[in-house]
């Protein structure tokens, strides 16, 4: 996972994901002076800025569950985390183990990898 790199080259290029057109965006600048080009609409501008300044993602995975009718319970970060924190988040997820029963929405880790974002269960695990 160490090879997940936030590319530092400039200008940065993205495919806009806002709609199916998929405009190729170029973003450059710093501070208040960010310039997005290649977008066909204002939503593309906003997306480009976000990806450039502070890309964030929801992480979905699964954790070990004991005493259940399945080996895993699926989980997600309850909100976006910084993209750069994904490797640390995944490492913590891998190390977690919970005990059945688990309900959907149950907090599995209150502050995942220091992101301030909790990890919650997205599937239930009944006790057997």
């Amino acid at each position: 996972m160490d090879d997940i790199i936030t590319m530092a080259e400039r200008p940065r290029e993205f495919i806009c994901i806002v709609c199916p057109v998929g405009c190729p965006l170029k973003v450059d600048g710093d501070g208040d002076n960010i310039v997005v080009t290649g977008n066909a609409c204002p939503r593309g501008d906003a997306y480009g800025r976000q990806e450039f300044l502070r890309p964030t993602r929801v992480v979905t995975s699964s954790v070990s569950v004991l005493g259940a009718d399945s080996p895993l319970v699926s989980v997600k970060t309850k909100g976006d985390i910084d993209k750069a924190r994904i490797p640390a988040a995944l490492a913590e997820i891998r190390a977690l183990t919970v005990r059945a029963p688990v309900g959907i929405g149950q907090i599995i880790a209150p502050d995942l990898a220091g992101t301030g974002v909790p990890l919650v269960a997205t599937s239930a695990a009944a006790r057997v």
Partner: peptide, 12 residues
């Protein structure tokens, strides 16, 4: 991918 998966089928 997780410790809990190992041998799960035989535990079941």
């Amino acid at each position: 991918i997780r410790e809990s998966a190992r041998g799960f089928a035989s535990e079941e």
